[in-house]
Simulated assay, not measured.
Amino acid sequence: MICGITKISLDNYRKPEYFYSGFFIMKNVDYIIVGDGYAALFFAHQLIKNNKSFVLFSEQKKSASQISAGIINPVVLKKFTTFWKAQEQIDFLKRTLNEIESYTGQNYLINAPIHRIFHDEKEKELWLKKSENDELKFFLDKNFDHLKVVKNDFYTGKVNQSARLDVNGFFVGLFGFLENQGCIIKEKFKYSDLNSSLNTYKDFSYKNILFCEGMGVRQNPFFLDIPVNANKGHHIKVNLSQPIPQNITIKKKHFLFPLNEKIYFYGGTYDRDHLHHGIDDSAVEQLKKGLSEFYPYDFSIIEANFGLRPTVKDRRPIIGKHSKFQNMYVFNGLGARGILNGCYFSKSLFDHIEKNIPLPEEVSLERFASK
C-alpha cells in the first residue's frame, strides 16, 4: 500500500490500440496531450493511475518547467503569508510523488527546507507574529537558526513543510518511462493536421485532447486568447569557493541550493518587460549582486538560463474546455508555483473530464467568459 491507495500496477496499463481505417492504420487513444512541462506530466500521471491510454507530444525543448528551481514552498516569503489551498496542495504532491515512485523507481522529493534570511529585527518580530496565525502556524517555525558560511546577522526562519523537487530527475524519469511505454511522440504538434470534427490527428484517433503548452499557447489557434502573460525568469549555476555545509535552501532575494557537491543553483528573477528569447545581462548582474549580499566568498558563474513562465493576473491556473469543441481542453497559467498547481489541479481536470465534476470557479477558464 502507498499513501492509502493500492500500489499502481502496470499489468493492465492501456497502450494505444490499432485499427484499420481505409488504407491507414489508426491508433486509438483516450487522450492526446500536447506539452512537456509540469501540467502535461502530472496529468499524464492521472491517466496512468486511472488506466487511460494516451500519447504525449513533446517538442523536446527546455520548457520553463524543466529549468525551474523546483521549490515547494507554502509561504510567500516577502510578506510571510500563505496562499489558497497551500496545505492541500503540499499533501497531494507528496502522495502523488509516492505514486510516481511505484513505476519510475524514484522519489523526486528532496527534503531540504527553506531558511529565510532576515533583513532586520523587525522581520523576525513579524515572522513570530505571523506564526500565531492559524493558516501559518504549521509553516513558520518559531525557532530561529544561525547558518554557517553565509551572512545572516539576524538569523533565519525555517519554513516547515518546504522542500524541493529534483527537477532534472523528475523530467528524465517521467520522459524515460513514457518512452519505454511507447506513449511519447518527439515532434512539434501541427495544429493544421488536427481534425477536430473527426477527433483525429494524423494517424491517431482520440476521445479527448489537452493542450499544456505554457507560453506556446500563443501559437495555438484554439486557445490563443486565454489571458496568460509571460514572466521571464533567469537563474545562474555557480561554483562556490566555500561550500554551504547543510543541504538546505537559502532564501534572501532569491533561492540558493546545491545541485551537487560543487555546483549551486541561484535564482530566479521576475521580469514582465524584457521578453525576448535570450539571456539578459542585467538579470545576470542582478543575480550576482544578490548572491554577493549574503555570500562573502568568491564564486564563479558556470552558466545562465532563462524561461518564460505563463502567469495569470489573479495568480491562479486556467483550466477548462473549448467553447465549441467539447472534448478539447486547456491546462495553463501555472506560474511560479508550477509544481503545486500542476500536480493538484491535474486531478481536478481529470475528475471534470471523466466524472463530470465541476472545476473550482477560481481556476476555471469560464471565469474569463464575461470579461
Rank of each mutant, 00 (worst) to 15 (best):
G290M: 04
K237L: 11
Y201A: 11
H274W: 04
V284N: 05
N239Q: 09
N199F: 09
L224T: 12
I263S: 02
G268T: 12
D225I: 02
F255G: 08
D271H: 03
T249I: 15
N208M: 01
H277G: 02
K207W: 00
Y206N: 09
F223V: 10
F223M: 09
I248S: 09
F265C: 14
F255H: 10
N220E: 07
K262Q: 09
T249H: 02
K232A: 10
H277Y: 05
N260P: 01
S197A: 08
G290L: 06
R272W: 08
S196E: 13
P227Y: 02
I279H: 08
T249E: 04
I226F: 00
V284I: 15
P227W: 02
K237P: 00
T269M: 04
L256M: 05
K252G: 04
K202L: 15
A283Y: 01
G290K: 03
N195F: 03
V217P: 00
I279N: 13
E285L: 12
S197Q: 11
K262A: 05
K252D: 11
K207M: 04
K252T: 03
N231L: 11
L287A: 09
Q242E: 14
N247L: 10
L224N: 14
N195E: 04
G216C: 05
N260D: 15
P243I: 11
F257L: 07
T200F: 01
D280Q: 08
F257S: 07
I226G: 05
F204T: 12
T249A: 14
V284E: 08
Q246W: 02
K262T: 13
M215V: 12
N195V: 07
E285G: 03
T269F: 01
K237G: 00
K202A: 12
D225A: 08
K252M: 10
A230K: 10
Y266A: 08
N260W: 00
L256T: 07
P221C: 05
N208A: 01
L256S: 06
E261P: 01
S241G: 07
K251E: 05
E213N: 06
L291M: 08
K252Y: 07
V238P: 02
I209H: 03
P245Y: 04
K251T: 02
Y264P: 08
Y206H: 07
N208S: 05
Q242F: 01
F222S: 06
H276F: 15
Y206C: 09
K202C: 14
D271S: 07
N231E: 13
S196L: 15
I263C: 03
G267Q: 03
F265M: 14
S196W: 01
G278V: 08
F211M: 11
I263E: 08
V228F: 04
I263W: 00
L259S: 02
P243M: 10
G233R: 11
F265A: 06
P245H: 02
V238K: 04
G233F: 10
A283Q: 15
H277T: 07
Y266V: 09
L224P: 00
S196P: 01
